[in-house]
């Protein structure tokens, strides 16, 4: 069992490392992740929302729908833990 697990992780790691060579080098300002849509947020967030912290602005305003269901997810987690564990006093 452990040999199979080791083999599976080594093979998966080798495949991932083979895929890594297509990535941009570390801290490259022209990498695809930093050039496509991210520069729009950096340039226009302050003008559109007056919020200096761009991360909070994207979290609360542009991706507000995502954050709303994030809150619902942790709420559901709390409810689930109460339902699984709580024993009635009587």
């Amino acid at each position: 069992m452990k040999a199979i697990a080791l083999l599976a992780s080594v093979i998966t790691g080798a495949v991932l490392l083979y895929g890594v060579q297509d990535f941009a080098p570390w801290a490259d300002p022209t990498s695809p992740a930093s050039t496509h849509v991210a520069s729009y947020y950096i340039e226009n967030t302050v003008r559109e929302t007056y919020i200096p912290n761009i991360v909070t602005a994207v979290l609360g305003d542009y991706r507000g729908y995502d954050t709303m269901f994030e809150t619902v997810v942790i709420f559901c987690a709390g409810m689930a833990v109460i339902c699984v564990l709580r024993r009635s006093k009587s």
């Binding site: 559109e48 929302t49 007056y50 919020i51 909070t56 602005a57 609360g60 305003d61 507000g64 954050t67 994030e70 809150t71 942790i74 709420f75 987690a77 709390g78």
Partner: peptide
């Protein structure tokens, strides 16, 4: 300015929910 304030209101709600959970 309302977008600024709206994010603040929402963050207060998130903070309360996270604290309680």
């Amino acid at each position: 300015q309302w977008r600024y304030l709206g994010v603040f209101i929402v963050e207060v709600g998130v903070g309360l929910a996270v604290m309680s959970i």
